[in-house]
Structure formats: C-alpha cells, structure tokens
Design a protein around this nucleic acid. Structure first.
Lengths: 270, 270
DNA sequence: TGAATATATCCGTTATATGGATATAATATA
DNA sequence: TATATTATATCCATATAACGGATATATTCA
C-alpha cells in the first residue's frame, strides 16, 4: 500500500526512518530500563520473534548487549559502557564543575552528585561517594524520574513551563510510600523550589536517605545541571547540619554557575 | 575499517548481517574513539554520504550522538551514557570490589581503579580519584591500549596466550616517548609480570604519572579484572612508598579475588 | 565575491530485511 | 521419567525498505 508515503505530517520533510537501526536503539533502551529474556523484549516491543532475534544477535556480537546463558536474560554490554563514558570526556560543564564538587564533598564527608535532565529522568554525571556511608543507589546507573528526589525536582522546576506540564501529564511512578505523585502537589513543590532556590526531599527515593539540590545555570541563565548532596535521612534531623549542607550546595552551584559565565543579578556579561 | 568480516566462511551457516544496524554500531564506535564531522566519518568508514547521513540523523535523534552545530562535529550523546551506566549497575565484580577499592584509596590518599579488558583496550570500570592530586586521564572515558600503562599490561599478561600473540601482531601505538611498543620487549615484560604478580610502569601513558597494577581472579582462577593505583611519577622515587603502594594493590586484589571464590593455592573449593 | 567543500534531500532500483513456518532446545508439568 | 509447553534458533520466498547517484542548499575559505 504505502509505497512512497513514508513522509509524516511534520513540517520539515521527516527523515526516512531507517527502521532496523531504530529498532536496535529501542531494544537497547528497553534492556537498559528493564533487562529480560528475548521473548519478553519481543512482546514488550511488539515485534516478530525472528526479527528481534537478528537484532539481539547483532547487538550482542557488537558487545552492546550481553546474554547470561543461564537465565537467558539480556543485559547492557561492555561496549555500551565503553562508548558511554566518552560522553563524559567531552562534557564541558562536568569538567568545570568537578573541582567544586570534590571540594564540597571534602567539606562535610558527603555524597555529592552532578546531575542533568535527560528526557523524563534525572541522569547522574558525576558522583563522589563517601566510603563510610554507602547509599545504595547513589551511584551511576540509577536513573530516577524527575518528581522523586530533590535532584529531579530541581531539574523539573527550572525546565520550561511547557515541559513541566507535559511531564506532569505523563504517568508518575512512586518509588517509595513517601513519593509525591499528585501533579497538583508537585506544582506547589516547584513553586517553593523556585522561591527558595533549592530543593529538599527525604525518603521519597529510598526510605532512609534524603537530599538537597540546587540548580546550575549557564551564561544565558538557563538550567544546565543540578548539584545534589545525599546523605542518610537521620542527618537532616539536626537542623544546624541541614542548614550547613544547604549552604554547601548553594555555594557549590553558585561557584559553578559563575565559572560558566552566569551572573547573579541577571546582568549578562557582554 | 571493515571491523568484523560479515560472517561468510564461519562454519555454522552464515547469519544474515543486518547491515544497517551494524553500520550504526560502527559509527558509534568510531565517533567514540575519534569525534569528527560527517565527511570525516564517511571517509573513514568508506560509506556513501547519503547513507551515512541517514545513520547519523537516526543516532542523533535517539540521543546516541550529539552534533555541535558550530563545528559540525559529532560526539557521543547523553543517551549513550544513560545506557552505558546500566552496565555497571549489574556488574557483580564491581559491586563486590567497591568496598575494597574505597578502603585502598583511603589508606594512602591514592587514585584507585578497577579495570577490565575489552577487546584491545583497558576499560575503566571504577575510578576513585583524590581531590588534591588530579591526574588528567585517570577518569572514565580514557581508554588505553593494553601495552601502555601497568593496568593494560596486567590484563594482557594474564590473557590467553593466543590472544597475546594476536594482540602483539596488531599495530602498537605510542602514547608517550616512553611507551614500549616493541613486541619482543613486551613479551619480556609479560614474563616479569607473571613472575612478580604485579606490574609497574611510569611515564608510558602520561609523562608525569606512574602506576602499579595487579590481577583479580575469579573462582575458576581466570582473570576478570585488574586493580590499578595511579599517582604522580615522583612518588615512586621513594622506594619505601613504592613498596607500600605495591603492598596495597596486592592486598586489594587478593581480597577481591578471595571474595570472588578464588583460592590462593589454586585449590578450588568444591 | 566566487570557488570549494560540507550538508541536506530526492527518487528509481534492487539488494536486504522481514516474518511465517519449521526445527531444536530448554523448562514446566503430570 | 515421559510429555506438554514454552523459549530459542534457523530457513527462505517475497515485498519492503534501504541504497547511492544526482541534485539542491548551506557553509567555509581564499
């Protein structure tokens, strides 16, 4: 039927789809978010088994996927890490921010992260963990939705209005019993964050941890990342300690933003 | 160029190649190792411009590549990091090793890494850097060939004979004027490493840094990773310090190997 | 300003991926 | 242990979807 009707309605002539490649990328994304067996993947993606099989083999052969021969489950492979790390090697903001993050971590023996928004999730770019106190999911590879955890909330709060709305329209998952998933309440939280300049949450990602985050801006005043300090929840009971941590976060984000050319008063440098 | 010969003569019936997907993966690998403009990539891979363009667009649209609109250069994109980090989240050895690595880092304010072999390169899985002393390329995203740096040499030394030979047959790049690239000399180094149980190199990766590495084995006694301690070269002038660091490396690898079920004397547990 | 180089897009042709069907392997169940 | 069930692997004729030469546009350089 559709011999030549590949073009969608998009104003600029939509690119030809390269179906095979697209499927492979989809498979990668799916496996990343939910490792599983071949059949699961085929069902989830609604593609024929034979087709999927070829794709899986190809990805496995390239090292992008790995298959555990006992369980038959596919996982992300070595090559994906090898290539993914190259993203960091060219990351201007990270390079610039790193010394400030390390210094912050030193100040209070804290877990400090630099995070960035990627679609609907908060993506950790750098994580400086303190040996003594290990918070399970405060490392690379744990991506949370934006409405859970102070880091996501900050990233959400300073995103464009339209994005916020479309985000809140989507499904809002609960990570713990304390996660806030009511759009109306999240809107309120966003208000607060924007007036305070930082976010604080506890127990909404992991039951026994809490975090404080603040935004990093570039020379145009737009959000590029967030800095997040995570620690065990109990630490925040001590009000003085909490204020101290807040101070460290704000100082750090301010320093990084300034290093990026941002000017506090909104006066852009010419 | 043509990395993997499409399975023609393989004994089992040749699998269908899925050319498009394969090309996309090749592009990713190439960009990771050498970011560049579209034309460069097309030439390097020897594929027609039109074809490449589609592939690039698709990868960019998926977030696997990013294009700097000023320079026109393509780099690895956010999504690649997002997915790559998931590799770590499922990494048994890393999970188990991490506490030991952190403890080692604490002992001497050192940069400690866990590395793994991936094809012809040494791939960093975990890197604990010390704030004060920053060694430029001791982070994620810098992948070195196996013959440069103690970590690569250890990984090479304990690889299967046949792999070593095929590795030495390939082209051996120099990273600094002190890199050893003579196959005969490398064979000698491998001998030494296997009799000492660790490797030490300086100035062969970066002029002013040096490192000591030792192998990590699993319950079957096969190499799974290496632990590497990197510091400024001058530190190794102090013989006592050098021995101290060697001791830390060996203790760490031993602990991790044992935790993996390896038994020192070669006695396998039943 | 014009030449040269890089990027974007079009479109007929055919090589290539598709998916139903069949074959084999691995589990679950009786 | 035998048998049903579900998962994985492979084959092959067909039509779809990708290819690449050619052309159009944008960008860079001299």
């Amino acid at each position: 039927m559709s011999k030549y009707a590949s073009n969608k309605g998009t104003k600029n002539s939509s690119a030809p789809p390269l179906k095979g490649v697209n499927r492979a990328l989809e498979v990668l994304e799916l496996v990343a978010s939910k490792p599983g067996r071949a059949t699961d993947i085929a069902n989830e993606l609604g593609i024929s088994w034979a087709t999927l099989h070829r794709t899986l083999s190809q990805l496995e052969q390239g090292g992008f996927l790995e298959r555990d021969s006992d369980s038959g489950r596919y996982n992300i492979g070595t090559k994906a890490w090898q290539i993914g790390t190259k993203y960091l090697a060219n990351h201007r903001v990270l390079e610039l921010a790193q010394p400030y993050l390390d210094s912050a971590a030193g100040k209070g023996s804290l877990t400090v992260q630099l995070v960035q928004r990627s679609g609907r999730i908060a993506l950790t770019l750098y994580s400086r963990n303190i040996s003594g106190e290990i918070i399970t999911k405060a490392t690379y590879g744990y991506h949370f939705p934006l409405h859970c955890g102070s880091k996501g909330q900050v990233l959400l709060a300073y995103s464009p209005r339209e994005f916020i709305e479309s985000y809140l329209d989507g499904p809002l998952e609960s990570l713990t019993s304390e996660s806030v998933v009511n759009p109306e309440k999240i809107r309120k939280i966003i208000e607060d964050i924007k007036s305070n300049g930082y976010a604080f949450t506890e127990g909404d990602v992991q039951p026994f941890s809490g975090s404080i985050s603040a935004p990093v801006f570039d020379h145009q005043g737009s959000l590029v990342a967030a800095v997040c300090i995570i620690t065990r929840r109990s630490a925040f009971k001590d009000q003085a300690r909490k204020e101290e941590i807040t101070e460290i976060v704000l100082q750090t984000t301010q320093s990084i933003s300034i290093a990026l050319g941002w000017r506090p008063s909104g006066i852009l440098k010419k």
